[in-house]
Computed example of a mutant assay.
Amino acid sequence: MIKKCIEYTITEPYTGCTVEEFLKSRGYSHRLVVYLRNTEGSLTVKGQPVYTIHRLQPGEVLKVVLTEDNPSRSIVPVNLPLSIVYEDEDILVINKEAGVPIHPSQGHHDNTLANAVAWYYSQKGEPFTYRAINRLDRDTTGLLILARHMLSACVLSNDMLNRRIKREYRAIVCGRTRDMGTIDAPIARVEGSTIERQVDFEKGESACTHYRRIAYNEHLDLSCVSLWLETGRTHQIRVHMKSIGHPLPGDFLYHPDYRYISRQPLHSCRLSFTHPVTGEPMEFTAGLPEDMRRLLE
């Protein structure tokens, strides 16, 4: 069983607020509040159970106990490389390697990031529930966040939805790009394909990518660009850069040219977000992997 205890000392601004109103102000979703309401012993003041309609007073300490009875037991622990950038009781920040899927799927039952995390916590003797907040393609490297309990997952998922988690990427692309630019072009699934996407101004969902060239290898005719996303569409960077004539080399879907690299050279290099429990600003960076660095030498 996973158990997380959080205590909140009520201050003047929250005088007279109900427990439900207070929890929602701290990022708890309606669904999570209902879960706590229906779980015995999850909400107490001075050691006594309280309802979500209880009105809080200054100086009261509201104790919230999050318990989970269904950790990810179906994920097989496998001893795989795992680069942990940051860890606390609420979140885990990982620097993912290339070739590692995020989730188990058909054909990928025991070689995923989930398997590696399951092994890590099995060695610590701790239960876990696997919750990846931001997603990276199998061959994309770099930073991603895992939530360690229901509240972290709730707050961070909402922050992702509302674009409060800032992500910066590095990509190697073909040709010499402009110094900087913005690609505002909707993206849709290619008809008849389950995974391939394309720019589609009739059926696509809005997608916006900003980029800036930071290096150029004249010998290989490759640019290194920094990218920021306003949206998070599937394959957004890969599709957008191809649409302006600068595809990523080694991309098996959109530009299968493997002369320089065996996978799409795309890397999540920076993550900025607010800690889901403490409210502190967090920022993490990860340098380019070796196969991408070689293309710039």
Rank of each mutant, 00 (worst) to 15 (best):
I6R: 05
Y8F: 15
E20D: 14
K24P: 04
K24C: 14
R26A: 10
V45H: 00
G47Q: 05
Y51C: 13
T52K: 02
R55Y: 05
L56H: 10
P58F: 08
G59M: 10
V65T: 15
L66N: 10
T67Q: 08
S83V: 09
S83G: 00
I84F: 02
E87P: 00
G99N: 05
G99F: 00
I102G: 12
Q106K: 14
N111Q: 12
A114C: 05
A116Q: 06
A118K: 05
G125V: 05
P127H: 05
T129H: 13
R131Y: 10
R135W: 02
D139W: 00
T140G: 02
T140A: 11
T140R: 04
T141L: 03
L143Q: 10
I145V: 14
L156K: 06
L156M: 13
S157E: 15
S157Q: 12
S157C: 12
D159S: 10
R163A: 11
E168L: 09
Y169D: 02
C174N: 07
M180D: 14
D184A: 14
A185H: 01
I187Y: 04
A188N: 13
Q198V: 09
E202L: 14
C208H: 09
T209I: 05
Y211K: 06
R212W: 06
R213C: 12
N217E: 04
N217W: 01
H219Q: 15
V225K: 06
S226N: 11
L227M: 13
L229H: 02
T231H: 09
H235Q: 07
I237H: 03
V239I: 11
P247S: 07
P249C: 08
G250H: 01
Y254K: 00
P256I: 06
S262Q: 15
S262E: 15
R263T: 00
C269M: 12
S272K: 08
F273M: 08
T278G: 08
T278W: 01
G279W: 03
A286I: 07
G287C: 11
P289L: 09
R293V: 12
L296Y: 02
